[in-house]
């Protein structure tokens, strides 16, 4: 199972995704990027049934970009999350539902506020201070419950994230080939180096 973790800090959202792709008993990729940039200040991370995941993510990306060019301004993060949820919800009761779990990290430049939306494959959408998907949440949520503070700085957030990864390295039964970390803040979306 893939790992998705999201943490909001005072002025940013941190999104970590596992880098491995496994088919059956084999690891077939070790530098996978499980994220797509929706706008300059919003990042979507996804896990689940392969094929569904990138297909759905890129479909959402295309629609949100289209909204941007059509209207001359970008969708708010709340709207992006609602739109994504709605697409997932209508697919849920169709012939072939998408099996995709999603985190959406966003930064509102005007309100100077970072948001994180947790959406599961059943299309339940909640805004949370920190969140995770998959087996990772069993290990990570309790750590975050104890140490997260909504007013923490980005540096403190990254330290906390490192602790989470450390715990996962120790407890997860399979090697997930490390994580890729992206930050969404005032300056936009950027990927952090290997050892962030």
């Amino acid at each position: 199972m893939d790992i998705l973790i999201g943490i909001t800090t005072k002025d940013s959202v941190l999104i970590a995704t596992s880098k491995s792709v496994a088919r059956g008993v084999s690891v077939i990729k070790t530098n996978d990027d499980k994220t797509r940039e929706l706008t300059d200040h919003s990042l979507l991370a996804f896990s689940g049934e392969s094929g569904d995941t990138t297909n759905f993510a890129e479909y959402i990306q295309a629609n949100i970009r289209l909204y941007g060019t059509r209207n001359g301004f970008e969708m708010s993060n709340k709207a992006i999350a609602s739109f994504t949820r709605n697409e997932l919800a209508s697919a849920l009761r169709s012939r072939k539902p998408y099996q995709v779990n999603i985190l959406i990290g966003g930064y509102d430049v005007k309100k100077k506020k970072a948001t994180l939306n947790w959406i599961d494959y059943l299309a339940a959408n909640v805004e949370l201070p920190y969140a995770a998907h998959g087996y990772a949440q069993y290990y990570v949520l309790s750590l975050l419950d104890r140490h997260h503070d909504p007013n923490m700085t980005q540096e403190q957030g990254l330290e906390l994230l490192k602790d989470c990864i450390k715990e996962l390295r120790l407890r997860m039964p399979i090697d997930f080939k490390g994580v890729q970390v992206k930050v969404v803040d005032e300056a936009g979306v950027r990927k952090l180096p290997e050892d962030f």
């Binding site: 890129e58 479909y59 990306q61 295309a62 629609n63 970009r65 289209l66 060019t69 059509r70």
Partner: peptide, 13 residues
């Protein structure tokens, strides 16, 4: 224009 915009995104997708 709207048709062109949709096509541009659809092409990329």
């Amino acid at each position: 224009i709207d048709k062109a915009r949709v096509e541009a995104q659809s092409h990329k997708l």
